[in-house]
Design a protein around this nucleic acid. Structure first.
Lengths: 168, 168
DNA sequence: GAGTGACGCTTAACGTGTTAACAATGACTC
DNA sequence: GAGTCATTGTTAACACGTTAAGCGTCACTC
């Protein structure tokens, strides 16, 4: 029986090692980093994504959902659900848009604001611990490379909104 | 009224810029990379995670669920669901473990194997396209930095299985 | 000012991430 | 060989990622 090949014990052409795959390498690195932050968020009773939302609201002040989604790197459907929970929990307030009644204007409640100021030093400490372990210069080097990668890839494989004000 | 601070328009101590946050920078970079791979997987009718599973089965041959989860960077509950779907779709076969009847031994069906060999050249092409845009040397530099970051962080914030055969 | 299309946001549906709990088997002790 | 504990894998529950579709509003045209 030679039409069965149930086991292939070494890489074939096109199947690369984990260490050479950008998607997997980025996944592993992010998991390694998040394992440092996860316990903190968990202790605070909020999720990583909820933190990203209230963090942006703290930095930007009252803003609409579209900007909030863009700034917190969430898709609109995710943000809708998250805002519903954050409102129910009293972290976020919502009022209808003034000039455009399609919009919702979101802002942080005092409770939400307090959450940010309370968490900030801890998160800062985690960042410092990571920099201490990995080397602050290497962190900067990595951040620069990641930004450049993003720029280098920012365009072609037809994403819905990749051609905004870019085609003459 | 000075006890309200509803709006903070510029960064406060501890709230850093996106570009300096490793979690967000890694998230953005991975999203940039995955936007190149997503269309391919979508066209093939499988998810990114399903691909990771059948890829490992192709490389490792028949193996148990624990090893499969570790090698495909999935948590056990996710893998359980994915295997159920892959079995139903005829990509994967399962038989009970021989020496340990708690285990399931998973292997790729001919259909699953064909999926891997069919997809490999395309995925390889995407990797090459990314290397062309970003620079092959920079890809290698980035992969090395990511691996070092993972090593530098691999230990302390108490993950359930971080102390395996490591403490003398 | 009705028609048409774009925009802001939400809901729906499905799959995955994450934690906790569980059932079944194995390993080990006494 | 009953007791105890670890291991294997699953299910449950909740939140998010992703795509598609829907609803209300805006803008613009004729």
């Amino acid at each position: 029986m030679n039409d069965r090949k149930p086991v292939a014990r070494f890489p074939r052409a096109g199947i690369m090692d984990d260490r050479q795959s950008l998607p997997i390498a980025l996944l592993r690195a992010r998991e390694a980093v998040m394992s440092y932050f996860r316990p903190h968020h968990r202790k605070g009773g909020i999720t990583e994504q909820q933190w990203r939302v209230i963090r942006v609201l703290y930095l930007d002040g009252e803003t609409d959902a579209t900007n909030l989604a863009r700034r917190s790197y969430l898709l609109a459907p995710s943000l809708s659900r998250i805002l519903k929970d954050l409102e129910a929990a009293g972290f976020v307030r919502r009022r209808p848009g003034t000039d455009d009644s399609r919009q919702s204007l979101l802002s942080l409640s005092p409770k939400g604001s307090a959450t940010v100021t309370r968490a900030a030093p801890f998160l800062d400490g985690i960042h410092r611990e990571i920099a201490r372990r990995f080397g602050r210069d290497r962190v900067d080097e990595l951040l620069a490379l990641l930004a450049e990668l993003e720029n280098a890839l920012a365009d072609p494989p037809a994403r819905k909104d990749s051609r905004r004000k870019q085609q003459p």
